[in-house]
Design a protein around this nucleic acid. Sequence first.
DNA 1: CAGAACACGTGAAGC
DNA 2: TGCTTCACGTGTTCT
Lengths: 222, 222
Amino acid sequence: MEDIVDQELSNYWEPSSFLQNEDFEYDSWPLEEAISGSYDSSSPDGAASSPASKNIVSERNRRQKLNQRLFALRSVVPNITKMDKASIIKDAISYIEGLQYEEKKLEAEIRELESTPKSSLSFSKDFDRDLLVPVTSKKMKQLDSGSSTSLIEVLELKVTFMGERTMVVSVTCNKRTDTMVKLCEVFESLNLKILTSNLTSFSGMIFHTVFIEFILALQFIC
Amino acid sequence: MEDIVDQELSNYWEPSSFLQNEDFEYDSWPLEEAISGSYDSSSPDGAASSPASKNIVSERNRRQKLNQRLFALRSVVPNITKMDKASIIKDAISYIEGLQYEEKKLEAEIRELESTPKSSLSFSKDFDRDLLVPVTSKKMKQLDSGSSTSLIEVLELKVTFMGERTMVVSVTCNKRTDTMVKLCEVFESLNLKILTSNLTSFSGMIFHTVFIEFILALQFIC
DNA sequence: CAGAACACGTGAAGC
DNA sequence: TGCTTCACGTGTTCT
């Protein structure tokens, strides 16, 4: 009566049949025509692409895609208890919630760790006399020491003039979130002619040494 | 032909029909028998629980459960682009991967923050009088300033102690023939545990910064 | 056998 | 127009 195309239930779950060959290539779609070979053979219709039966193949593809995604979801979630379609999603949900909670916890911990450092007053003052600290520019204000969060906490700022053309700016600061990026942004925003720059991260600090062309620099810094 | 029980497609997506009443109560299952009321009326069979058609109601429940889960998954994932069943899972996957990456980053950051010599008291004091130029070692003699040819002409030698484990040696010298090589040879011959080293050549000078593990270093330098 | 879980084909709705 | 997505009922397999 309606037992057309009735076979191909060799395995319980679709993905395991042909997907483990491609091994985690979920987005490659529509995965060639791996199935059609085993399916078109049983198609009784002479017309290759019957108008009605064009839907059933795309439906197959849709199901297959969904199963692929589900399989992929299962692979990124550790501690999968059951292979159930529903259980996979359930585990994924609780896993996501766990990650979100952990992330908040870690961020809070970081925020707490970053708020403690303080001090470092003594030697930053001591280094002042080392050589002229030109933190008068508007942009350079961002480098000001003692800033609480998300700003650059400068521990040492040393400027050395070499000859008449160049100066060497040496900055030591605590390594916080995206401190390197902010440092680079500050220097880039100054539109200086940077000859060479050197960034070293170590022991929770960042050592930055920049060689700057002098003539262009003065109008911005002083 | 087989259009038994063919109605009830009032809304596109199942969940929105009856689920928004219970409003996010995913795990309460099997959600009573909300549907059966509207369905059993169309059942032609006199028997209340027909043997074959008992499957279709559990199938409905299965589908409903799966959609609930999918809906729940969608609700915990921000930035959902499309409402597609497949897209929901896809977004969930990339979101999970993003969370995992962020978690690793935050953990690394915390690890780094915790490893910083915490007691900023001790080493900020050490920073005050850095220096001390320990050029008494035999090998270090090569670094002596004022040498004429083929030796390293040291212009500045600064030693900073960081915490109790590491020290930073900063050398500035004139760039002569093979000065870089000699510098490297000197430091290598000292058998120090060098954590990181940095060589910059500019304007006829060489700036060399070396981070050295402290415990091993003492026996050679002092 | 009952129950759960799945893939399939099909008709319908929206873009 | 055609393409996509969906829910549905059904038959099958495994527990």
